[in-house]
Design a protein around this nucleic acid. Structure first.
Lengths: 308, 308
DNA sequence: GATATCTATCTGAAAAACAGATAAATGGTA
DNA sequence: TACCATTTATCTGTTTTTCAGATAGATATC
């Protein structure tokens, strides 16, 4: 016996076995599935060795299943069907889920988080119409409560109304110091808030970023030396890149290159700076509709929420 | 891209994918399952091409499942579990079925049909105690009706009491002419009953074989030239082998060699000769107990009753 | 006995899978 | 910035596996 002492079956062996069981003849099965007779004979032989009992009785005019072979056939069919499903289902279009989703998103989420996920979601759930509205925290919270929005994806750490809104964090993005490629700080492992306070600072105003900034500056005697306030992340990036100032922003919106092609570097802040938390928010009282549930589940899976 | 444009996944790819999903890192998964990192990388890449979407997002410190990857993981685990079950279950000991089976069998069944099946059945159902009794048709039918036997495996074509007994045929075994290796008939394609009637005939008496024989001899003007009557198939075989006579018996009891090592040949009879039908018999009124049902199902599968 | 048809086995060739080496990208650290 | 550690991706040569075709053996049919 020259056989490699197989321990694990292969799918091919299952298919060959099923073909033989269907045909009642190994040679006919070989014709059916367009392989050689010896290939099927060997596949079955291997399976029988693995299982430890004969699957077929061999006759002069074909083969017939033994008791064990009959049991195995059921399992084999199940296995092949499961494989079929596994390959087919992940890209299955979930046409069963219908309806519309009124989704509110905040600025950074709209630009840096939602797009890729929303694209995939729409491919997977083509019958869900997503009406996405970008807005500020206040109007979003109000819309969720009044029912104007089904669901929001926003910065969860900023949420004010905890009586009427639930939230769930999907992603925590670290905040670090952005600076130009030739900044002297880059020779240090990190920069302290004290050091940063001496630098010209570019303040991003969207998503209440300045409010958030206050939270960690307030714990120190220092304040940022804000020379410019903008609602554009691209503006921040460009200004940082050409050396006009530094900024503390989340990794989620970080890109190494500015629009002009200049490099933006990044480094940790010595003091603990809160992460930027992105997640869902919804009204406590009302149940999510089918489309919203699908979207929540979709992002759960994409973010690996259940992974731990 | 040097890849062979795979269409069907392999089980190995499923296993590698699961390992990577569990570990969160391809390289760690490679260590876990003791293969090279490139093997897993390639397996995942192939799967992604087959499915048509990414299963993982690649990061600098590992991989994380995409939405599609999460869905696929469920399927993959199911597939591997099903394979596991398929390989393990056919030899699973059915300890759940308990009880005793009072089984009656007729002579030829006891010697040439039951043993191999009963051995396998007992391995599969160790908690079923089979009390097997060999008897003649009359006492078997009586025992089935009075409840002394739960079930019988016998020659169904011989059953007399059709009012109180049900039966089901499992196997039809062709009857052919047995003769010695140098018999002149062997130069013909077949032998007619007329020709056979001129030969010395060895009559087997068990299982009412002589009654059965009468059924087809009666349709002709000829009668077998019986020179010896015996209840031993071995005796028939030996006597045929040394050329003392011929016999018409079923393939089920045919063996090419006699006890003395002489060859017994076999050839068809020209006229239609009824097959020997082996099957179950049981009392119409009573329901089979669990052990009996298991035995019936076992033989159904072994004989491929549901195959057609 | 000849023929046809079945499964089992053998052999050389083709295909696939793999390990190992290396590249490319990124994070952490000094 | 540089350097190191660690990640995934890719490439290469080798090993392993799979396979088709040929052949043998067994059995049914004619």
């Amino acid at each position: 016996m020259e056989f490699p002492e197989q321990v694990e079956p292969t799918l091919r062996q299952f298919r060959y076995f099923i073909a033989a069981a269907n045909a009642g003849q190994i040679s006919q099965a070989a014709i059916d599935i367009n392989v050689s007779q010896s290939a099927i004979t060997n596949a079955i032989k291997s399976l029988e060795e693995m299982i430890g009992s004969a699957l077929f009785e061999r006759h002069a005019n074909g083969v017939s299943l033994t008791y064990e072979g009959n049991l195995f056939l059921d399992h084999a069919r199940h296995v092949v069907a499961s494989v079929e499903e596994a390959i087919r289902l992940p890209r299955r279009i979930r046409e069963d889920v219908r309806g519309s989703l009124n989704l509110a998103v905040s600025y950074t989420v709209a630009g840096y988080f939602i797009p890729t996920h929303l694209a995939r979601f729409s491919r997977a759930f083509p019958n869900v119409k997503v009406n996405m509205v970008e807005s500020d925290r206040g109007p979003i919270e109000e819309g969720l409560i009044t029912g104007g929005f089904d669901l929001a994806v926003m910065l969860t750490s900023n949420i004010a109304n905890h009586e009427e809104l639930s939230h769930e964090t999907l992603l925590r993005s670290r905040r670090r110091l952005w600076l130009s490629a030739n900044h002297r700080f880059l020779q240090q492992p990190s920069a302290s808030l004290q050091e940063i306070s001496a630098e010209p600072y570019i303040m991003l105003t969207v998503d209440e970023a300045s409010n958030t900034a206050q939270r960690y500056w307030k714990k120190t005697p220092y304040r940022p030396n804000t020379i410019f306030r903008t609602s554009s992340v691209e503006a921040v990036r460009s200004m940082v890149a050409i050396g006009m100032g530094v900024a503390i922003l989340s990794d989620m919106v970080y890109r190494p290159w500015s629009l002009e092609g200049r490099r933006v570097e990044v480094m940790p802040v010595s003091e603990p700076v809160p992460t930027m938390d992105v997640g869902f928010a919804w009204s406590i009282g009302t149940e999510l509709n089918e489309a919203a549930k699908a979207f929540v589940e979709f992002l759960h899976l994409a973010m690996g929420v259940d992974q731990h």
